[in-house]
Design a protein around this nucleic acid. Structure first.
Length: 663
DNA sequence: ATTTCCTATCTTTTT
DNA sequence: GATAGGAAAT
């Protein structure tokens, strides 16, 4: 028996989960109840009981969660035995299914995954072309309608708004013409293959005999259907979830799936984990008092194992400046008590709230790490570099070609680009083919043809270097040098900080190419991975030290000794939009998730004023605040706190500041 | 064709 | 208060 796998360390319910290996299992795991531990132990138990690692599949929602789960199982059973485990997201699972059999649903094998900015770009173009610009149609709205239709298995033509339907159909045609699919197609086609192609279904069912789905409350109906197709008798499926932590309703997640589960997979073994090992009683009392205001949830109580604890603090701030400054001061003060920066997390509802906090931290020279801000792969310079990689792999991918055609500027402007695009459409060929087409070049000015010839030459030269066996990363690097990409990029930057960040991003991308190709991956495989790896951040987050700044959404599954939950104002949490859409329950769950991240200390703040769009506006306290159990809350006011501290702590730290400055 | 300067719009949350 | 997209100037 491998070390590290100790069943006696588990409680009764957890042990039951670990020992029930066959048949459908539904684990209802409240926040902080040792869910990950239970699931990883259960997977180790499967291995202990002789199930081959290649027959085990665990599906998660983020790549990060997948990596973490894999690592923890490996720790328990050893690298060798866990080697062939499949732990991945729904989306990467579907990529595997599609790579094998996509031809049976009418796409070519070397399909392309369309995500992020490229997707928005296509939609934006189509909005302009179809005349949606004057209706102020937003790409995000169109995308969300398309996504809804796909997830509900409805035809795009059935979208209610005629204009959006038209754009949606055009969008799908565009993707099809590019042999590209988007995130939703990934699931849609994966499910379709499993449904229609019996050989494929048999193959995957035979391979994955034991399936685990993490964060089950976040599955949408399409993912649910996919699971159904993937898991056949004897239904060795285990799902883990908590309806109180369902915060992705806007992406189609449906807690009804937890109920559905019992219909699709008969007589599941239901196990409830309600004993919380993470937070103090005070934190849990407040969390429970909030969540019980939601209707239609499975009644459950998180039972504390750590009794008492500091009262939850609720501090009223005059404005968002003071909020940021005060929190930073708190961190400084508590650090002196021996806490490390990694113990602190600041949680907020919207990304717009980050900046003030960042500035305040930087002023005090406190390092911080950010989660859930802009995705690495959505950065302009990274997508440009990836565009060039795509060109090396296949110049007929129009989107990539158009993206870098004049980036950096090389004399192929809007006019020429539009002409090329029209020509390629008329002749039903790729833009690349157009650029090397005599018939097209004949009508252009010598200046334009010269610029195009030079570009085409570059592409061909570097493709040849690749064929000649030169490493892809080197080819890419020399090409970027040849076109003075970095110098040009630097001129686009305003600050040194920006220059550093972009420089770093570019060299990291080149490094990523190097690593991937050294591992024997093709360039196309590398590009696929980047498309799915939306949660990749600048550096490995865990390696970075400092205070964590994180959105409530991104914080799910994480825990911190000391949590600041900021901006508890009506319109922010609950978000203004949720009132219009009637989704306050989800906002309440979001706050619940935030509260239950805290292990020891929780401080919530709200501001009487906040700067929005550069204008100071008055704010109301969040309507959730009166719902909280005030027996466990200590209400404080910024002015009182500062008044009191100025005569005491503040002065002391002021003088110690002077003291250290003189040293 | 490219740069620069102005203006309208924006803020949920993400695989 | 940033940023993207458009008009005007180079």
């Amino acid at each position: 028996m491998a070390a590290g796998f100790d069943i006696s360390a588990l409680n009764k319910a957890q042990r039951e989960a670990v020992m029930t290996l066959d048949g459908p299992v539904l684990i209802l795991a409240g926040a902080g109840t040792g869910k990950t531990r239970t699931v990883t132990c259960r997977m180790s138990a499967l291995l202990e009981n002789g199930v081959a690692s290649k027959n085990i599949l665990a599906v998660t929602f983020t790549n990060k969660a997948a990596a973490e789960m894999r690592e923890r199982v490996m720790e328990m059973v050893g690298k060798k035995r866990g080697k062939d485990l499949t732990v991945c997201t729904f989306h990467s699972l579907c990529v595997r299914i599609l790579r094998r059999d996509i031809e049976s649903v009418g796409y070519k094998k070397n399909f392309n995954i369309m995500a992020g900015g490229d997707q928005t770009g296509i939609i934006r173009q189509l909005i302009v072309r179809k005349g949606g610009a004057r209706e102020k149609l937003k790409p995000a709205e169109v995308m969300s309608e398309i996504s809804k239709a796909k997830n509900a298995e409805l035809p795009l033509t059935g979208i209610e708004d005629d204009l959006i339907a038209e754009i949606a159909v055009a969008y799908q045609n565009e993707l099809r013409a590019q042999n590209s699919i988007d995130f939703d197609d990934l699931l849609l086609l994966g499910e379709k293959i499993l449904r229609e192609n019996q050989a494929a279904r048999d193959y995957w069912r035979d391979l994955f005999r034991y399936v685990t789905v993490d964060e089950f409350q976040d599955t949408n109906s399409l993912q649910m259907r996919l699971i159904q197709k993937l898991v056949g008798e004897p239904y060795n499926i285990c799902v883990v979830g908590d309806d109180d932590q369902s915060i992705y309703g806007w992406r189609g997640a449906d807690t009804a799936n937890i109920l559905q589960f019992e219909r699709f997979f008969p007589n599941p073994h239901v196990i409830r984990l309600e004993e919380n090992y993470r937070s103090t009683e005070a934190v849990l009392k407040v969390a429970n008092s909030l969540i019980k205001h939601n209707t239609g949830r499975r009644e459950k109580q998180l039972r504390p194992t750590i009794m008492g604890g500091d009262l939850v603090r609720l501090v009223t701030m005059p404005g968002d400046d003071e909020e940021a400054e005060w929190i930073v001061q708190e961190i400084v003060a508590q650090r002196e008590e021996g806490k490390t920066l990694e113990d602190f997390a600041i949680l907020f509802r919207t990304n717009g709230q980050i900046r003030k906090m960042e500035n305040a931290l930087r002023e005090e020279k406190i390092p911080y790490r950010m989660v859930g801000a802009q995705s690495f792969y959505d950065r302009k310079e990274v997508r440009d570099v990836l565009g060039y990689v795509q060109l090396l792999a296949d110049p007929e991918k129009d989107i990539a070609l158009l993206r870098v055609l004049n980036t950096p500027p090389r004399g192929i402007g809007q006019n020429t680009t539009m002409l090329a695009l029209d020509y390629s459409r008329d002749h039903d060929c790729s833009v690349w083919k157009t650029l090397i087409d005599e018939g097209f070049l004949a009508d252009l000015s010598t200046r334009a043809t010269g610029a195009i010839a030079k570009f085409v030459q570059q592409v061909e030269d570097h493709q040849r270097m690749l064929v000649d066996g030169k490493a892809a990363a080197e080819v890419l690097d020399s090409w970027l040098r040849e076109m003075d990409f970095l110098p040009w990029l630097m001129t686009q930057c305003k600050t040194d900080k920006e220059r550093d960040a972009r420089n770093e991003a570019v060299s990291q991308t080149i490094g990523d190419v190097k690593v991937a190709t050294q591992k024997g991956k093709s360039l196309q495989e590398f590009l696929d991975k980047t498309a799915l790896d939306a949660d990749k951040n600048d550096d490995d987050l865990d390696k970075k030290s400092g205070v964590t700044l994180i959105t409530l959404h991104a914080s799910k599954g994480l825990e911190y000794p000391i949590v600041f939950l900021v901006g508890l104002e009506e319109g922010i949490l609950p978000h203004k939009r949720s009132q219009e859409e009637g989704t306050q329950d989800e906002e309440r769950r979001l706050l619940y998730v935030g509260i239950t991240r805290a292990k020891q200390r929780l401080t919530m703040t709200y501001c009487s004023t906040r700067v929005k769009y550069g204008k100071k506006e008055a704010c109301e306290p969040s309507s959730f605040l009166p719902e909280l159990d005030h027996d466990w809350i200590d209400e404080e006011d910024y002015d009182d706190l500062m008044g009191a501290e100025a005569s005491d702590d503040d002065l002391r730290s002021f003088f110690s500041g002077i003291h250290s400055a003189l040293e």
